[in-house]
């Protein structure tokens, strides 16, 4: 079965309600920030429904990416997963609160939230708060978050192979996003994201 992808350029201020057995796949390639906080709600009301979100955030200048993503498992056997990767340069900032809740009747829920951030310049900053509320026991739940700069060991390795520092950093940032691209089938979307990363890197000194 082919994936139906909803391709966005922002985190929308919106409520997505999932009916029984509905499956949606959201990919966001986000390069422009916004003032204030966006509030995205994913409400899995239908039994067996699932939602997968993958967001790529590329922050430059003074842009701010501030969002609260709420995921509600309100029926049995629902799946809501979100994977967010952000790379921030200049004075850009990213603040994501993931508020995941598994209601009492949502047994068999499968949930995951991850937010990984690469800080590429002194002025960039990140805040991440992956909240999880679980009201029943038969669930699979996990979350992960990380914030840091490009891996020093990997950088050293590439430099020792004769690759220039700028190139090495670019490769590592590309690799950081490439990991998440595996889940996407649509080649066109994949290429758009790769191009955006290259454009982003050309703006970073």
């Amino acid at each position: 079965m082919s994936q139906k992808i909803l391709f966005l350029d922002t985190i929308p201020d919106q409520t997505i309600t999932l009916k029984s057995d509905e499956e949606i796949f959201v990919v966001g390639l986000i390069t422009t920030g916004w003032p204030g906080i966006r509030n995205l709600v994913i409400n899995a009301q239908g039994r067996g429904s699932s939602c997968m979100c993958i967001f790529f955030i590329l922050g430059t200048g003074n842009s701010s990416f501030d969002a609260k993503i709420q995921a509600i498992h309100a029926a049995p056997k629902t799946q809501i997963k979100a994977r967010i990767r952000s790379a921030l340069t200049d004075r850009s900032s990213c603040s994501i609160e993931g508020a995941w809740s598994i209601e009492k009747n949502a047994s068999g829920a499968d949930t995951y939230f991850a937010h990984h951030t690469l800080l590429l310049s002194q002025g960039a900053s990140a805040k991440t708060a992956p909240f999880l509320e679980i009201k029943t026991d038969d669930v699979k739940a996990g979350h992960a978050a990380s914030v840091g700069k490009v891996d020093a060991d990997a950088l050293f390795y590439l430099l020792s192979r004769g690759i220039s520092e700028q190139q090495a950093r670019a490769l590592l940032v590309q690799g950081f996003f490439e990991t998440e691209l595996e889940a996407i089938d649509d080649e066109e979307i994949k290429n758009k994201i790769r191009e955006a990363v290259i454009t982003f890197l050309s703006q970073t000194k």
Partner: peptide, 25 residues
């Protein structure tokens, strides 16, 4: 019931911050 409310507020680039959580029965 089990809840997890971690917050990571990072204002410095030269850091390594990692967080993971699991819930199981």
């Amino acid at each position: 019931r089990s809840d997890t409310y971690p917050t990571m507020d990072i204002k410095e680039e030269d850091v390594a911050v990692a967080h993971e959580a699991t819930v199981a029965s």
